[in-house]
């Protein structure tokens, strides 16, 4: 058994998702190697070198990989693995991994196992389906397993080592069918919805977009990300990308605070992996109370200012 971990980074630092993926690899085998493709990635390598569990790091530093275009990455990784004895190829199930890894699986004629949350054995894994409303235990019959790993399900590996690094060249031709135009980093000072430790969301009970200000103050105090239910998005209170739920973002923070959200099935599907759920709702029969660790019945317009004051 030999595992290759594909490292996600931004040419400056290693993404935490990569360290989580290394931890997942450790549950499969002790023989783990990593590959980093990028441009000007010395700082990335210096950080990654400290990772526990890695036996070796391969580095391909080339302008082809200045931006993470899946066309170039998947081809280069496929070339690198040809003739190798890797039994498993793991990537984080972030937008980076989701974009690239299925391409690798198509090049290798392997059926990828997406977004695993648990490793049962070297060929059997658990993965959520129906937005986590069911958990499938799947066994892969492919000779090589190509897997994406849900980072929040594996603790990042410790950084107490010093791993050997080997530099490789690439003679890959540039793919002229695609070009990178720009990357706009989210301007919000708030953390990303999908990686925030605390998320506070509003629903139809907020009544209008203006009232989301009541949540902002609390989010600022807690360093929380802000979200919304589909009802609030459909009503035009807040933009689409705030939507938490089955067809929106799936979140798993330490604390999820649902305000004025009744708890429709499709919303619950997106939040049920949260460590703790608290809710505020004036309807004590609302389904959200059945999923909340702490429920507070009452008028959110009275309770939110009080909550902000107490934090």
């Amino acid at each position: 058994m030999k595992v290759l971990v594909i490292i996600e980074h931004d040419n400056e630092t290693v993404k935490q998702s990569s360290f989580s993926t290394i931890s997942a690899a450790k549950e499969i085998s002790d023989s783990i190697e990593a590959i980093v493709l990028g441009q000007g990635i010395d700082s990335v390598i210096n950080e990654l070198k400290k990772s526990d569990h890695l036996k070796k790091i391969y580095k391909i530093d080339n302008e082809l990989f200045q931006n993470p275009l899946a066309e170039n990455l998947s081809k280069a990784i496929h070339k690198f693995t040809e003739g190798s004895d890797y039994t498993h190829i793991l990537s984080p199930s972030s937008t980076f991994g989701k974009n690239m890894s299925p391409k690798l699986s198509a090049l290798m004629d392997v059926q990828q196992i997406s977004d695993i949350t648990k490793i049962i054995s070297d060929d059997t894994f658990e993965r959520p389906i129906y937005a986590g409303n069911a958990i499938a235990k799947v066994k892969s019959n492919d000779p090589i397993k190509i897997i994406t790993v849900r980072p929040t399900c594996f603790e990042p590996c410790a950084l107490n080592s010093s791993v050997d690094v080997e530099s490789l060249e690439t003679n890959l031709d540039k793919n002229n069918l695609i070009s990178f135009v720009s990357y706009d980093k989210s301007k919000s000072d708030r953390p990303e919805l999908t990686s925030a430790k605390i998320v506070i969301s509003g629903g139809r009970g907020m009544q209008n977009g203006e009232n989301f200000r009541l949540l902002e103050g609390i989010a600022d105090k807690l360093g929380a990300a802000m979200g919304a239910s589909r009802a609030a998005v459909d009503a035009g209170f807040v933009p689409n990308d705030w939507q938490v739920g089955q067809t929106g973002k799936i979140v798993a923070p330490d604390l999820y605070i649902a305000v004025g959200i009744s708890g429709a099935i499709q919303h619950i599907a997106g939040i049920k992996d949260s460590k703790f759920i608290a809710c505020i709702n004036k309807d004590e029969e609302a389904p959200i109370f059945n999923f909340s660790d702490y429920g507070l019945v009452g008028d959110l317009f009275e309770l939110l200012p009080k909550l902000e004051e107490k934090l």
Partner: peptide
């Protein structure tokens, strides 16, 4: 199929919460 679905389970239940 390359993948065999061995079983499909309900997700772990959330512990019942309290009202404050």
């Amino acid at each position: 199929d390359r993948l065999q679905i061995l079983e499909v389970n309900e997700p772990p239940e959330r512990k019942p919460g309290i009202k404050v």
